[in-house]
């Protein structure tokens, strides 16, 4: 049982804060839904509700287009503190 449940009880963090709109320029709000390699975290791990997940994905993709967030971090360009980029 202990192994099966790696994550705590799921709830949507964005719902808790009553976020109605996610700005792609506010990188701190996107940080939660990004993995260390700047992939979009799936809903089953973050616990986001569907509505907010859709808002977040759009925001992340826009941030990627405008070079605020990298598309990928691979072995060729490893950063020690990946979230240092986000200020």
């Amino acid at each position: 049982m202990a192994e099966r449940r790696k994550f705590k009880k799921r709830y949507c963090k964005y719902c808790e804060q009553k976020v109605e709109f996610i700005d792609y320029k506010e990188l701190n709000s996107l940080k939660f839904s990004l993995s260390e390699r700047f992939k979009i975290m799936p809903r089953r791990l973050t616990g986001n509700c569907k509505r907010h997940q859709e808002l977040v994905t759009v925001a992340i993709k826009r941030a990627r287009q405008t070079a605020l967030i990298p598309y990928v971090i691979d072995r060729k360009k490893v950063v020690e503190n990946p979230f240092e980029i986000i200020r």
């Binding site: 320029k25 990627r64 405008t66 070079a67 605020l68 967030i69 990298p70 598309y71 980029i85």
Partner: peptide, 21 residues
């Protein structure tokens, strides 16, 4: 004016850029 920022990836060989909204 968001000012000069480091780009997350090089664009046309530039590492930084001046952001404005």
């Amino acid at each position: 004016d968001m000012g000069m920022r480091k780009l997350a990836y090089p664009v046309e060989k530039n590492e930084r850029g001046h952001y404005t909204v």
